[in-house]
């Protein structure tokens, strides 16, 4: 039995693998004390190899994890579990977005990651949703309703937020602005994909893959060139990948 735990900026995810099967999984908010939170989640299992990933991986390693791997490797392993032939993985988490290229055997061959700023990440969507008065869960669905799109020009989260607020004050419907926000994320992603190169099958993982508008718009943007596919629980891919690493 192996346990993978993904300590992200917003949530902690956990997956348990036994004999190559996912036998249990959990997801909770990180809260103020992610370390105790993780401990709590682990309580119900007996002895097992624990592999940590995500931003809190090193802290976890100091306290309870046997091994650490990066989110990049974890998402690659997770994606391969569901889609054994995939060569391209897009992962958007709370703090960063990544495009990962895999070789034939599923090993990471190259990757791109957003730089310092939060633009194009889950955090960016979260801030924009809040300033437009949507819950994060409804944000994507709301944006999908819009027919007219407005352009958000700023790349920086802080400037984009003031741009969004001024649009709102000009009376532009919030769903249209929401659509524009999604568009700016998708544009960034598409640029990263073009830079790295991609296969015709692109696995979309990470919490943001639950947002229906991002996947839809990315598909539209890439058109015939690629097919966007997602596993059943995209936010658990990192934890699953870590557990798979542990069971190897």
């Amino acid at each position: 039995m192996a346990i993978g735990i993904d300590l992200g900026s917003r949530t902690i995810k956990l997956a348990v693998i036994r004999d190559g099967e996912i036998v249990d999984q959990q997801l909770t908010e990180s809260g103020f004390d992610p370390y105790s939170q993780a401990r709590e989640m682990l309580k119900r299992y007996g002895a097992a190899k624990i592999v940590a990933t995500g931003y809190g991986r090193h802290l976890a390693h100091e306290h309870f994890a046997d091994e650490v791997i990066t989110e990049i490797k974890a998402h690659a392993l997770g994606a391969r579990y569901f889609f054994p032939f995939c060569r391209t993985v897009v992962d958007i988490g709370g703090q960063d977005s990544k495009v990962i290229g895999l070789d034939k055997k599923g090993r990471v061959s190259n990757f791109q990651m957003n730089d310092k700023c939060a633009a194009g990440t889950g955090r960016f969507l979260e801030i924009m949703a809040a300033s437009l008065g949507f819950s994060l869960n409804d944000f994507g669905a709301a944006a999908l309703k819009s027919k007219t799109e407005v352009m958000i020009n700023s790349m920086c989260t802080v400037f984009a937020e003031s741009e969004v607020i001024s649009m709102k004050n000009r009376g532009i419907p919030t769903v249209d602005i929401a659509r524009g926000v999604h568009h700016s994320v998708v544009n960034r992603l598409a640029a990263m994909l073009e830079r790295l190169g991609y296969d015709e099958e692109i696995v979309f993982s990470g919490g943001v893959a639950r947002n229906p508008c991002i996947g839809h718009m990315l598909q539209k943007c890439l058109g015939e060139r690629a097919r966007i596919i997602s596993p059943p629980d995209p936010d658990l891919m990192g934890a699953i990948g870590a557990a798979l690493h542990g069971s190897r």
Partner: peptide
């Protein structure tokens, strides 16, 4: 950007 760079560097070493 230390956290970011750390992730990228570790992933590079894993690779």
């Amino acid at each position: 950007d230390t956290g970011q760079l750390q992730t990228r560097i570790e992933a590079f070493l894993e690779q």
